[in-house]
């Protein structure tokens, strides 16, 4: 819990600052409007699913760079097959859920059985899945047009709360995913195994834990959630271009996990932290949009600087605590 207080405070500060700057400068409720808040929550939900997935892999001490390409594969593949190739939607959806499972299994097997480095395995994944998607679709944009309204409700729908504001449906999906993963991590023996092996694979194995299987499970869940997020992303925006759909999403997800307290060395991480990290990044993007529209092109630089500042502040705080203890 202690680990996420810092990020929670930072999130609150950035949120309030955005509110004050955006709404006070313009004299209108542009940030605190039902429309903007709903959109913000929707994006947090979609990116949050990615962040939670990759945090499981990071807990094992690994990394998954292929998320964005899996988002592309599913996000472009679903409309391309269902609309472009005329496949029945249930078959396409089944494929959209099964294919990422197979991808995760492949990553996990390569990492555990062949002892390949996760960075290399998933870097190759990043290249392969995007290349495959672009090749099959000939770089043609895919979309649902006016069809599949009911299905798209999963991503762009809302549960009306009061006039002008509703809970975005993806937020409910994120809630379910987050709850399941939190239970997995904190209440099941497998979550315990995952944290233990992330801290010391050898000690966990010497305790009779089948660490390879647990690592594979982490990669499978991660890719599956990336596929789910890819599906929701395309259902939300309706159009997906193979060239850039999902570009850099893996980095947003990894950044959110790290901001939220996951150590790239493995062994630590909480679902709440990852959610806070995701929210922080999305509020920042929202701030740039609303307050500094002239600097839109600087978005990555700003996000990069804030993440760096967050990590540096965290490290300095840790050292201050250590020094304080030393002094006592």
């Amino acid at each position: 819990m202690k680990r996420i207080i810092g990020i929670a405070v930072l999130l609150l500060v950035v949120y309030l600052a955005t509110w004050i700057m955006a709404d006070a400068f313009s004299g209108r409720a542009v940030f605190m409007s039902g429309y903007n808040q709903e959109n913000l929550l929707r994006r947090i939900a979609l990116y949050g699913i990615l962040g939670i997935g990759v945090s499981l892999v990071i807990i094992t001490g690994g990394i998954d760079l292929s998320l964005g390409s899996v988002v592309c594969l599913v996000g472009v593949g679903v409309p391309w097959l269902a609309v472009g190739q005329g496949w029945p939607m249930p078959v396409v959806l089944l494929l959209a859920l099964v294919l990422p499972l197979a991808i995760g299994l492949g990553h996990g097997l390569l990492v555990t059985r062949l002892r390949l480095q996760p960075f290399i395995v998933t870097l190759c994944g990043l290249l392969i899945y995007r290349g495959v998607t672009r090749g099959f679709t000939q770089d043609q944009t895919a979309g649902f047009g006016n069809g599949f309204k009911a299905l798209r409700w999963l991503a762009n729908g809302e549960i009306p709360l009061f006039s002008g504001f509703g809970i975005p449906v993806p937020l409910l999906i994120l809630g379910v995913v987050a709850a399941l993963v939190a239970v997995f991590l904190n209440r099941t023996i497998y979550g315990r195994y995952l944290l233990a092996l992330g801290n010391s694979e050898e000690a966990a194995r010497f305790s009779g834990i089948q660490t390879d299987r647990m690592v594979i499970v982490a990669y499978v869940i991660c890719s599956f959630l990336a596929g789910l997020a890819g599906l929701l992303f395309v259902l939300d925006v309706n159009l997906a271009q193979p060239v850039d759909f999902g570009n850099f999403y893996e980095l947003f997800a990894i950044a959110a996990a790290v901001l939220g307290g996951c150590s790239l060395r493995g062994g630590t991480g909480t679902v709440l932290g990852v959610l806070a990290g995701t929210a922080l990044i999305q509020v920042l993007r929202n701030m740039i949009n609303l307050v500094f529209p002239a600097y839109q092109n600087m978005e990555y630089a700003v996000i990069g600087l804030v993440i760096l500042a967050g990590v540096v502040a965290d490290e300095l705080a840790k050292r201050a605590v250590a020094r304080q203890k030393a002094g006592s």
């Binding site: 944290l195 233990a196 801290n199 010391s200 050898e202 000690a203 010497f206 062994g267 630590t268």
Partner: peptide, 13 residues
């Protein structure tokens, strides 16, 4: 330290 215990984890775990 490497094979016997998970150093970063608690006595309980």
């Amino acid at each position: 330290k490497k094979q016997g215990v998970v150093l970063a984890e608690s006595v309980r775990r």
